[in-house]
Computed example of a mutant assay.
Amino acid sequence: MKPAAPRTDTRKPRLTTSAMIASIAGEGQRTKPAPFGHTLVELAKEDGSILGMTADLGKYTDLHIFAQAFPDRYYQMGMAEQLLFGAASGLAAEGFTPIATTYAVFASRRAYDFIHQTIAEEDRNVKIACALPGLTSGYGPSHQATEDLALFRAMPNMVVIDPCDAHEIEQVVPAMVRHKGPVYMRLLRGQVPLVLDEYGYSFELGKAKLLRDGYEVLFISSGIMTMRALEAAKALVSDRIDAGVLHVPTIKPLDAATILACCAKPGRLVVVAENHTVIGGLGEAVAGLLMREGVHPAFHMVGLPDEFLAAGALPTLHDRYGISTEALRARVKGWLT
């Protein structure tokens, strides 16, 4: 009997990325390890007021690097986020500069009132750096901080920053330490992509930066969606669509002047892209600004839906909820045709 021919498996390879892994770097993408932790250590060598504090998540917010360098200035508060932020406020009142880390869901949801009352209302010099922002975890709603920007934007005195990559984080950390008052920063941890160094970018607190110009589409983005917007803009070239990217890392205070100037250019589509629910984040902040100032471009928002998201592998979830590069490219093409 003639042996049967081997079967060819035409199925797509199964995505095996663990829901635990919060890496947003693409295959072969340049990365840098733990930019937050290493930058903080360098700052602390010169500034003795800097303290590192966490709620049982030092390893998972890259604060363990600080703990190894300055064990006598590191405070492990246990799984007690309210205690973490209350103690940070007290230490700030005594002249220290506490850097408090946890997951974004635990700061924005579990400890909201403690931050609101003891840090924001008192205008205390506490810096809050939170990992797993938006859809950077496959754990499901318990760990997906899809509404953190909306919550922290609502706090008076609070500066809110959503950095894009390792290059920017290395500049954000000293800037937020220099700022006198409370700061909330979305934290990318572990092997963090390198993107903005290719554009000669430098971070300035409260400033948006035009990374590339385009006469048909303007992406306005923050965080990892700036990386996606830049990738989509490059891909759209083959579709004969010219797209620009305005990076807005400081969500509050918003750089109104730069946003208005860029959106006032006639004849191009404005697309706000964010790794956050479409409720209360960058998109609605920009939309409100444009309406108040009487600037009315064609306008769309790309963000996470107003629902509890699924658990699973990040590439699958990013495609499903429309924040992958290909999903962003496809939506822009659809809006222009």
Rank of each mutant, 00 (worst) to 15 (best):
M1I: 03
A4E: 09
A4K: 10
A5H: 01
P6R: 11
R7L: 09
T10N: 09
M20F: 07
E27A: 15
E27D: 12
Q29F: 03
K32M: 14
G37R: 08
L40G: 13
K45I: 10
E46N: 15
E46Y: 11
G48I: 11
S49H: 10
I50H: 09
I50C: 08
L51K: 07
T54K: 06
Y60H: 14
T61F: 12
D62W: 12
A69R: 10
P71M: 10
P71Q: 09
Y74F: 14
A80F: 04
Q82L: 04
Q82Y: 02
Q82M: 04
L83Q: 03
L84H: 04
L84M: 09
F85M: 09
G86E: 10
A87H: 03
S89H: 09
G90M: 09
A92Y: 01
G95H: 11
T97G: 07
T101N: 08
A104P: 01
R109L: 12
R110M: 10
Y112D: 00
Y112C: 00
F114C: 15
H116F: 12
T118M: 12
T118P: 08
A120R: 01
E122F: 14
E122V: 09
V126I: 15
A131C: 11
G134W: 00
T136E: 03
T146P: 14
E147V: 12
L149Y: 14
L149V: 15
A150M: 15
L151A: 13
R153K: 15
R153P: 02
A154D: 14
M158A: 12
V159C: 06
V160C: 02
D162P: 01
D162C: 04
P163G: 04
P163Q: 11
P163R: 00
C164Y: 00
D165I: 05
H167F: 03
V172K: 01
P174E: 05
M176N: 05
Y184T: 05
Y184I: 02
M185A: 12
R189P: 14
V192Q: 03
V195P: 01
L196A: 06
E198H: 13
Y199C: 13
F203C: 06
L205G: 11
A208T: 06
L211G: 01
D213V: 02
D213Q: 13
G214V: 04
V217M: 02
F219D: 00
G223F: 02
I224C: 11
M227S: 14
A229H: 11
L230I: 13
E231C: 14
A232W: 08
A232G: 11
A233K: 04
K234C: 07
D239T: 07
R240Q: 15
I241G: 03
G244H: 09
V245F: 05
P249A: 06
P249R: 03
L254E: 06
L254I: 03
I259V: 08
C262Q: 12
C263L: 07
A264K: 13
P266N: 08
E284A: 00
A285S: 06
G288Q: 00
L290G: 05
L290K: 00
M291T: 02
G294R: 02
G294S: 11
H300W: 03
M301S: 07
V302G: 02
L309Q: 07
L309A: 06
A311S: 15
L314V: 13
P315G: 07
P315I: 08
R320H: 10
G322F: 04
S324F: 00
E326L: 14
A327S: 15
A327Q: 03
L328M: 14
R329E: 10
K333A: 14
